[in-house]
């Protein structure tokens, strides 16, 4: 018990101990921010992997660690698309995942946002053109926000989400 307390006291508060990310070159268009107005104080995200290499997933998971602590900005990660305000889609859409992506989109209640996370979701990255890849996310569902990077750093994801939800 004392060992645990000592550890916590010794560690202190680590939130925010990360290098600042630069402001993205292109900010979200006006209509996207308009669409995001209901979610300015609270945004629940469902992450969908349609064929990524797992690096984008790791960075999404990092948002929940004590250093980035996305909960402090009202960002929650939901277990089901039925609870979500936004879908974060990673990876090129593979032939085998195409139907699952469309199903998830259908099951997410309106109003909803779709965020393409990482280069693969935006333009298929190194997997472009393959027989097993049907195209970027926007070919299958409408995309509201693109966060480029291979993978984007957690701090970059947080900035992009903050810009989107700015009043």
């Amino acid at each position: 018990m004392f060992r645990i307390l000592r550890k916590s006291l010794k560690t202190g508060v680590v939130t925010g101990q990360h290098p600042a990310a630069p402001q993205p070159a292109d900010t979200a268009p006006h209509e996207t921010c308009e669409k995001a107005t209901p979610f300015t104080t609270s945004l629940t995200i469902r992450e969908v992997d349609t064929g990524s290499c797992n690096a984008c997933e790791m960075e999404m998971n990092a948002l929940a660690n004590p250093i980035y602590d996305a909960e402090q900005f009202g960002i929650h990660l939901a277990a089901s698309p039925r609870h979500a305000d936004a879908l974060v889609v990673t990876g090129p859409v593979t032939v085998n995942m195409e139907r699952a992506l469309k199903d998830v989109y259908r099951h997410t209640p309106d109003p909803k946002l779709v965020i393409a996370l990482g280069d693969c979701a935006i333009n298929c990255g190194v997997f472009k053109g393959s027989y097993a890849v049907t195209g970027p996310v926007e070919r299958h569902v409408p995309v509201d926000l693109r966060i480029p990077g291979c993978p984007p750093r957690p701090a970059e994801i947080l900035i992009a989400l903050a810009n989107l939800r700015r009043r």
Binding site: D49, T50, G51, S52, C53, A55, G91, P92, T94, V95, N96, M97, A100, G125, V126, F127, S130, Y131, A132, V133, C150
Partner: peptide, 24 residues
Amino acid sequence: WKHRGVEKLFEQQPLAAALPLAER
């Protein structure tokens, strides 16, 4: 579910240039 055709993609590339694909 995530089959992306990686081994076929390798066959389209020169030996010297396929490292970024292997890394991903």
